[in-house]
Design a protein around this nucleic acid. Structure first.
Length: 489
DNA sequence: TAGCTCGTTGGACAA
DNA sequence: TTTGTCCAACGAGCT
């Protein structure tokens, strides 16, 4: 009796899973496999928040499979060797999986596919993660797009496939299951990590991904365009970690938006839905860029930025990481991140801008911190976001756009609900000074129980000085004039 | 090939 | 208080 190995990676779902559906169609017993292969992830093995999520996601996937009289076989180590060993052990003659697009994975999967085929096995890969795979989108010169708008316009001329259906009922299973590790044996949960905060904020797994999408489509997609920028409002989809781990796929989201427009006949049905799909477009664009410019994980897309005079300052970096910069909107975001493994998108931009422009600390430092702290840490999205903020990526902000953390706070958290939630020591301060507590008169600070520099830090940099220094540093980069450096602190 | 337009998310300042 | 205007680099993408 032969069998098909279905190799799960970042597609931890049963719905819209082309590899699994194809295996089912093939008819042979299916052996679902997950291999924890940290060396195979290149320089970007999952960080602590991602490992926590992965642990629970694997539990959820196993539960879902057991509901279909199947189970998830777990292994750890080199993916290629583990697959070969499992194939030999189970007499499997085919291995199916869904593709990934990170540089290290592409290189590894290519070797694995060749080795399996050399042994006479059928090795097939599918697209589960993207609406449009990177090699299917190009500009009129045949080159990859580097600007979002033309990229997304081009994508919208291409068809989006419907989600793949998996027939109901038990999955064909082998008579004997191969040996498997327990999820706990993968050692994904570390003792020092913030498991409690994450568990309060999130429920990993496909079932909750589907629930979250339904809830969002029902209540939040229509007002999305108007409220998504306000961090105190639960106005975003919160689907990012589910998408990263593939507990839901972009085709399912596309189909949900399409289903909603059936009544009106207009697609998308609302401005909110249109803006929401554009966000999905950014996710596509991030994968497109990562695929075509794999060096951007470490290096700026715009080569000139390798000359940027970044500062190294461990104390400033630590203050940023811990939410102790003295700028409430920045600190609130960094504390939300530490506490929940997630940060509102608007605040991600503000905190990232502050690190690279006000502190002039290299974006790679920020990317590394986010990578470890975010439950939705995704190499493509993280890279694009940080390069965009630093101004060295695709479609980056013009150099003279520098977020003013006070104005951003006043504009997007006018009533201070967000800041008061994450910085309780400032809660009693009136709105007028909440985003710049150092400007508050002494008697107000005393009334609010705040001792500047003790209960809450003074700003570690002055906005206007930092802004000038950032512009000067950009000028140094642009002209290559080393004299400009002398003027920089 | 040359030239033109444009760019997710802004800020400072004047009126 | 709100609104409009400048900032004015740089390179992608298109015609």
């Amino acid at each position: 009796m032969t069998a098909t190995l279905v190799w799960f990676r970042q597609d931890l779902r049963l719905r819209d899973n082309p590899a699994l559906a194809a295996a089912h169609q093939r008819g042979a017993p299916i052996i679902p496999v997950y291999i924890l292969d940290e060396m195979g992830e290149g320089r970007w093995p999952p960080g602590s928040a991602s490992r926590w999520w992965l642990h629970h996601s694997l539990v959820a996937l196993d539960t879902a499979l057991r509901g279909r009289e199947s189970r998830l076989v777990l292994a750890r180590g080199d993916s290629g060797s583990a697959l070969q060993a499992l194939a030999a052990q189970t007499n499997a003659d085919a291995v199916y999986w869904n593709r990934r697009y990170e540089p290290a994975d592409i290189a590894r999967d290519k070797v694995i596919k060749a080795n399996l085929r050399a042994k006479g096995l059928e090795a097939r890969s599918f697209n589960a993660a993207l609406l449009h795979e990177p090699h299917t989108v190009a500009n009129k010169s045949g080159q990859p797009f580097q600007v979002f708008t033309p990229f997304w316009r081009n994508c919208q001329t291409l068809p989006v496939e419907d989600p793949v259906m998996l027939p109901a009922g038990p999955l064909p299973s082998p008579v004997l299951w191969p040996l498997s590790l327990e999820v706990a044996e993968l050692g994904l949960l570390s003792r020092d990590a913030g498991g409690a905060g994450w568990a309060n904020a999130w429920r990993p797994g496909e079932a909750d991904a589907v629930k979250q999408l339904k809830k969002f489509m029902l209540h939040a997609v229509r007002p999305y365009a108007d409220v998504r920028d306000f961090p105190h409002i639960d106005g975003t989809s919160r689907l990012s970690p589910y998408l990263h781990f593939g507990e839901i796929g972009p085709r399912q989201i596309w189909a949900a938006v399409r289903a909603q427009s059936r009544d009106s006949g207009v697609f998308p049905a609302s401005r909110g839905a249109h803006v929401f799909l554009t966000e999905l477009g950014w996710r596509e664009f991030a994968h497109h860029l990562l695929f075509h410019f794999p060096h951007t994980v470490e290096q700026p897309l715009r080569a000139g930025f390798s000359r940027f005079p970044w500062r190294q300052d461990a104390a400033w970096l630590k203050a940023w990481q811990e939410g102790l910069t003295g700028y409430p909107i920045v600190d609130a975001g960094m504390r939300e991140l530490r506490s929940t493994g997630w940060m509102h998108n608007r605040v991600r931009m503000i905190t990232a801008s502050f690190l690279v422009k006000h502190l002039r600390i290299a974006w790679q430092e920020g990317a590394g911190w986010f990578w470890d702290a975010l439950v939705d840490a995704d190499l493509a999205n993280n890279t694009l976001g940080w390069q965009w903020s630093a101004g060295c990526g695709a479609d980056a902000t013009p150099y003279f756009h520098i977020f003013n953390p006070v104005l951003q706070g006043e504009k997007f958290d006018a009533d201070g609900v967000y800041v008061r939630c994450w910085i309780p020591e400032l809660a009693a301060l009136p709105n007028e000074f909440l985003h710049q507590p150092w400007m508050a008169p002494m008697e107000l600070l005393i009334q609010a129980g705040i001792k500047m520099g003790e209960s809450y830090p003074r700003p570690i940099v002055d906005h206007y000085e930092a802004r000038s220094a950032a512009l000067a540093a950009l000028e140094v980069m642009r002209t290559g004039d080393p004299d400009g450096l002398g003027q920089l602190q």
